[in-house]
Amino acid sequence: MADTILVVAEQREGKLNRASFETIAAAQSIAKETGWQVEVVLPGSSIAALAQELAQKAVARVYALEGASLAAYTSDAYVFALKQFIHEKQPKLVLFPHTYQVRDFAPRLALALDRALISDSVGYKHENGKLLLTRQMFQGKFAADVSFAGDAPWLATFQIGAFRGEQAEAGSASVKNVAAAETTPRVVPHEVFQEAKQAVDLSQAEVIVAVGRGIKEQKNLALAEELAKVLGGEVAASRPICDNGWLPLERQIGSSGQTVAPKLYIALGISGAIQHIVGMKGSRTIVAINKDPEAPIFEIADVGVVGNLFDVVPALTEEIKKARAGA
């Protein structure tokens, strides 16, 4: 039988995490080069309909790993059930989306299996029969090709957005129900909730002016506000700015904040750590202003300005005013 790539899909409260389809797309792509087959496992309770949804993709089989202890996520129950399942199936490769849930249990699962987990990969290479996972290091300043030095099963997670979910090929697979091995979790989870209703929906903004550490002081936010005003846009920020309390959390862009895709995204003094990039890389036009020519934000910018934002931004605001007046 062919070697298997097992995709561990994710659901919460009756909904699939769409990142599961990105991981299926990644697995299908690897399978084409290696000749391995793709299977999917979905842990949870009462998940028949969700397993059927996954079975609409071109995979060999979908396992619904059912257990009462998997109804609400806990690392204890997930590690216990998946350890048993992976141990029995012995896939060559186990792939996960790099979600907050996966970050919580996948390292522990790997060690329980005495195997390695290469986390937060953005791509892969298949060179002379050897599988390499590409991941970012030093906040995106470098990339590394990482290989597995031990025995399979090999475990890896893919960063959100590294593959496109809609590129997962359609097909028709059978669903097999499997009773999960169960344990009593030590962790007691409560309801998932959102803080007070968000007043700003940045996902609807056509123009966003975002600031990062390079803005240096809270009073300098006025520069960004001026620029946003002449463009009719919203001000947003990378995580450190919100951590400092300079802007409310609801204006944070990135993996822990909002995901946006405006027509124009202007990044001021943002280095471009991956946690920020995943929240804005779908923007149509990206302008980055940063004093560090090596800043990773320039990798994804359409227009890059290496310079002092305190000089460039006022000049840019003036120039846009002029352009608007002349238009």
């Binding site: 470098f142 990339a143 597995f148 030095a149 320039f298 359409d302 890059g304 300005v305 006022p314």
Partner: peptide, 25 residues
Amino acid sequence: KNLQQIERLYVPVKQKKTEMVEGPP
């Protein structure tokens, strides 16, 4: 034994063609 091995480290390949703009403000 380390079960994963960094084979090489490099500057990432650009995903986009970036137009770099220079000069006085």
